[in-house]
Amino acid sequence: MTLLISLLLGVTFGFGLILAGMTNPAKVLAFLDIAGNWDPSLALVMGGAIGVAAPAYALARRRATTWQGTPVPVEAPTPVDSSLLVGSIVFGIGWGLSGFCPGPALVGLGAAYLPATAFVIAMVFGMEAYEWLLVARGNQFEVQSGEG
């Protein structure tokens, strides 16, 4: 049951990305191009998403359990560190070079869209490189899977 709901939520998330224009790299780059013909649409995507999600998070915080019956996770406040800063800046460079971020790239892969497919393969290698470096550094950073 959880699997079926997750599948449907994934489809809905993908529909949202397509409807919003996020799966069109040209539109994403037009949003990032503030010095050119700026298309502010994607700011509204984020606004629309936060507008719906924020009340839900506020509601969840006041509940003891999820609808599934498990405890609502309490976010431990973690400090801003160099991993967050460097990682986000590196991610932004890749985003600005291609117009793809992970979700829309996966939708593009699902559409057998060749540029997205090449991007996703490279992205998985990038993720692997991160894991490999972590191991090489003797797990200096703890692997987290919370937010992303």
Partner: peptide, 28 residues
């Protein structure tokens, strides 16, 4: 495109989030 994919994969894992995890869920 390939370079961008590598950077996005590496960066999002190092930062523990991307446009959805930080941009939507985190800000919300």
């Amino acid at each position: 495109l390939v370079a961008a994919g590598l950077l996005v994969g590496f960066g999002t894992r190092l930062a523990n989030g991307c446009t959805s995890g930080h941009g939507v869920c985190g800000l919300a």
